[in-house]
């Protein structure tokens, strides 16, 4: 809100001090992210400014071929495998379920919805301990499939929420039109429904991916060294020896977050435009 011309001096003073306060809060939000990035190029193993020199040695620890690098590269590989598999599963299961939820009212709909959303409600430590206790008994602890199942469960609610939200504005008559023109249910889904709800599906998938990519607590309980992911490596990094390698890893992850954020923003705008909502 711009300052009106009739504002009194007190209002003026307040207006500018309010902006300064807000600037400080924004600074608090963003500064840590921008402070840690340059430190990953430090030539010395410290976290202080001014930096004595610049080097890529910490990136070499991640991408080189030292014993440490092997651990980092395995972590990256695991994170990618787990992330993509969990996202695929969560998106497929979640989208189909959201279609069902939007179609009809049926008994215990509230209870069913509560169960589908529960993974983001239950505190993560309880989830991790429960899964550890159960998966260990059926031989899924310390396996990649075990972690994929766990991450799928954690990511699914986001897909259900975003796709359900997209389906609110969805005209069910389009499905009937497709069917009346002779398309089978699968054809109707891929040719009519999916293209229209795609922004919701993709943003749900991105949420599911971000959840898995960032997940640490379940991995702490379920994974042994072979299944360590990037967050798990960083956890060890912070607890054991803290050197700029974790700053390098953090910088790489921040670039990925920027990518995710921009994609999300583009999708949101596209979906608003498609549905005729002006930004």
């Amino acid at each position: 809100m711009a300052l009106p011309p009739y504002a009194s001096p007190v209002e003026r003073a307040w207006y500018y001090s309010f902006r300064v306060i807000c600037a400080l809060i924004f600074f608090f939000l963003i500064a840590p992210i921008f402070v840690i990035m340059p430190l990953s190029f430090n030539s010395e193993p410290y976290f202080t400014y001014p930096m004595p020199g610049y080097s890529l040695r910490w990136y070499d620890v991640i991408f080189g071929d030292s014993p440490q690098s092997i651990l980092w590269q395995r972590a990256i590989k695991n994170s990618v495998i787990i992330g993509f598999s969990a996202t695929l599963l969560a998106t497929a299961l979640g989208t189909v379920a959201a279609l069902g939820l939007s179609r009809a009212n049926f008994p215990f709909k509230g209870v069913v919805m509560a169960v589908l959303i529960s993974p983001i409600v239950v505190p993560i430590v309880i989830t991790a301990v429960g899964m550890y206790y159960f998966y260990a008994q059926i031989g899924l602890a310390s396996t990649i499939p075990g972690i994929i199942l766990a991450h799928t469960a954690l990511g699914v609610p986001f897909v259900v929420i975003t796709v359900t939200a997209t389906l609110v504005g969805f005209n069910q008559n389009l499905i009937r039109a497709g069917s009346s023109l002779g398309a089978g249910p699968a054809r109707v889904f891929f040719k009519v429904t999916l293209p229209l709800i795609l922004p919701g599906v993709v943003s749900g998938a991105l949420f599911a991916f971000a959840t898995s990519w960032d997940e640490i607590v379940v991995v702490l309980f379920l994974a042994s060294v072979e299944q360590h992911t990037i967050p798990r490596r960083m956890w060890s990094g912070i607890r054991e020896l803290i050197d700029p390698t974790i700053a390098a890893a953090a910088t790489l992850l921040i670039f990925l977050s920027i990518l995710l954020m921009v994609t999300m923003e583009i999708l949101r705008r596209r979906s608003e435009r498609l549905r005729g909502i002006k930004a």
Partner: peptide
């Protein structure tokens, strides 16, 4: 941006 940045990255920072 902070919202999308990994929890562990922010804790590390």
């Amino acid at each position: 941006l902070p919202f999308w940045t990994s929890l562990l990255v922010r804790t590390t920072a």
